[in-house]
Computed example of a mutant assay.
Amino acid sequence: MSLSTDIRPFSVADFRARVARLSTHGDGEAGDHLIDPALDRLHDRHLRDAAVLVPVVAREPEATVLLTVRTEHLPSHAGQIAFPGGKIDDGDRSALHAALREAEEEIGLVRDVIEPIGQLEPYVSNSGFRIVPVLSVVAPDFTLTINEHEVADAFEVPLSFLMTTSNHRRSSKIHEGLYRMFYEMPYGDRYIWGVTAGILRRIYERLYGDEA
């Protein structure tokens, strides 16, 4: 993917250009089953529709990605790092609407500072969700109001770190009684893994992978 040399790598302008050049929405499939062969029948399960917001913050000179830490008492993915998002409710008009609603409910990220610029094909998770990643650019002057029932913390990671393949590690462990294989992207004391790392890896493959 050849971009103009006057656009800084990993800037928000570079990210916009890559999203604009996506060939199609729905190019193949993505999901935990492509990382972990033991999950090769995920597509046969009844899946619940969900959406997440991928908030790329327009920092200069390099963009960042805003992530959350789920609280420890939640019934699923407790304590894990995640994108803002959740189930698509009956009242949601679209995956985009659900992602924007959840971002505002979870961390107070209001729609006025969010510019949706694209979507990736759904990511199928081992937990039974078909997740639509909504790619967006977020104005850097946002403020957050964290819903402490759902979110313990929010933080930013440089886009350059997340989109560099040497930071993507395949790993495995026993999780909830099952042997799991997955991607992990440790960043300082933040442990990004599982579905979130899988979606980030898919973003890398779709936007940056041909430059590896």
Rank of each mutant, 00 (worst) to 15 (best):
T5C: 04
P9V: 03
F15N: 05
F15D: 04
R16M: 09
A17E: 15
R21L: 12
L22P: 12
T24E: 12
H25L: 15
H25R: 14
G26D: 11
D27S: 14
G28I: 10
A30K: 08
G31V: 03
D36H: 09
P37F: 05
P37I: 00
A38W: 04
L42W: 06
R45H: 13
L47R: 05
L47W: 05
R48P: 03
D49G: 09
A50I: 02
V52A: 05
V54N: 04
P55M: 02
R59P: 00
E62V: 01
E62C: 01
T64A: 07
T68E: 10
E72S: 11
L74F: 04
S76H: 13
A78L: 01
G79H: 06
Q80I: 05
Q80K: 15
A82V: 10
G85M: 06
G85K: 07
G86K: 09
L96V: 15
L96P: 12
H97T: 12
A98D: 13
A99E: 04
R101T: 12
E102R: 15
E104R: 05
E104Q: 02
E106V: 03
E106S: 00
I107T: 00
I107K: 00
I107Q: 04
I107W: 01
I107V: 13
L109C: 01
V110H: 02
R111H: 06
V113S: 05
I114D: 00
I114W: 04
P116A: 08
P116M: 07
I117A: 02
G128N: 10
R130C: 14
I131L: 09
P133Q: 12
T143N: 12
T145P: 01
T145R: 15
I146Q: 11
E148A: 14
E148L: 13
H149Y: 14
H149E: 15
H149M: 08
H149L: 15
E150M: 13
E150H: 14
E150D: 13
V151T: 15
A154T: 02
F161N: 01
F161K: 01
F161H: 04
L162S: 01
M163E: 01
M163R: 01
T164A: 02
T165M: 04
N167M: 00
H168E: 03
R169G: 00
S171Y: 03
S172A: 14
I174K: 13
E176C: 03
G177N: 11
G177E: 05
R180C: 09
Y183L: 13
P186L: 05
I192E: 05
W193F: 11
G198C: 12
G198S: 11
I199H: 09
R201T: 08
E205W: 08
R206N: 12
R206E: 15
L207R: 06
